[in-house]
């Protein structure tokens, strides 16, 4: 059985009477690149903040690498929540020096460790400039460098590509992929960029209204849905709609491409649907199975 990097059980946080996070259960295995998805206001950042001890929780437990002491467990974790903040009047290196002290890195090891992380994010040349002069992309990289201090086993990144230009996003994505592949760091990443998640994550959790609504490997999530969506076309669109409405278990999802009608059909065989349409005398011009991407899954499970 593989080791668990992050185990969240029954995590809840309320603001007034509204649940921002409700009974959240999450398991991130060591070696995962876990994509944490959800629409704006779904509770992603709140869940990450609660897990990292930034904000209070109303219920639940959080364990990093099985350690029941959350503060001690955080020594294995580097994190960036939103835009990383720095003491702008200090240089990048001085900011890292402070962070190294908080991380518990012995002062004799700190210079080498700082050099390592600065190299890792290709920021060594600008390390002695004041952090206030850094671009957003450089701040994100310095944030990653700070999170990497002390060789954490896990990185938690909240919207790490937010505000970056396409080049910066590409660099950040490559860096995250490289950290997972070459440094064997477990990555927990929250983002809106679903295509990106599909490219770099092996497991995904989708949160909506504070509750986890789907979780699994990307393959699982896609394969579960792959055969269940069809697009149908007919010269008698009204007739087609009427027939489909009458089939139990078939749901008209909405318009598809080129005027086709998109349906979800769960476990009902495609042949049965085709037979029902044809036997009702409705011409069936096209029947296209849709291979869904993560965006389709996301939109479906977060539909309220």
């Amino acid at each position: 059985m593989s080791e668990v990097a992050l185990e969240v059980r029954g995590l809840s946080r309320k603001y007034g009477s509204r649940f921002a996070v409700r009974s959240l259960d999450l398991t991130v295995q060591v070696g995962d690149v876990y994509g944490f998805l959800g629409p704006n206001g779904a509770g992603k950042t709140t869940a990450m903040r609660v897990a990292l001890g930034l904000i209070r929780r109303d219920a639940g437990t959080v364990k990093f690498f099985g350690d029941p002491d959350e503060v001690r467990g955080r020594r294995h974790v580097g994190a960036i929540i939103e835009i990383p903040a720095f003491h702008e009047w200090l240089t990048g290196r001085e900011n890292l020096e402070l962070a190294a002290a908080y991380a518990g890195i012995p002062s004799k090891d700190a210079p080498a460790e700082m050099a390592r992380v600065l190299d890792r994010v290709t920021l060594a040349e600008r390390a002695d400039d004041k952090a206030g002069t850094y671009s957003l992309g450089m701040k994100q990289r310095l944030g990653i460098a700070r999170a990497l201090l002390g060789r954490p086993r896990m990185l938690m990144l909240d919207e790490p590509t937010n505000g970056l230009d396409p080049r910066g996003m590409r660099e950040m994505r490559d860096l995250i992929r490289s950290l997972a592949l070459h440094d064997a760091i477990t990555v927990f990443i929250s983002t809106h960029l679903l295509a990106e998640v599909q490219q770099i994550c092996n497991r995904v959790g989708i949160i909506n209204q504070g509750t986890l609504v789907a979780e699994g490997t990307v393959e699982q999530l896609l394969s579960e849905k792959r055969a269940s969506i069809l697009e149908l076309a007919s010269s008698d669109a009204e007739g087609l709609k009427r027939v489909l409405d009458g089939i139990e278990g078939v749901e008209i999802v909405g318009p598809g491409e080129s005027g086709r009608l998109r349906i979800g059909h769960g476990q009902i065989p495609v042949a049965d649907i085709a037979k029902a349409v044809v036997s009702a005398g409705v011409p069936l011009d096209a029947m296209v199975p849709i291979q869904r991407n993560l965006e389709d899954v996301f939109l479906e499970v977060t539909r309220t």
Binding site: V71, R72, G73, P84, A85, F86, A99, Y102
Partner: peptide, 14 residues
């Protein structure tokens, strides 16, 4: 206010 406190609280320090 400048959010730098967050970076300290994220560390393994009570």
């Amino acid at each position: 206010q400048t959010r730098t406190l967050r970076e300290d609280v994220l560390r393994p320090v009570h």
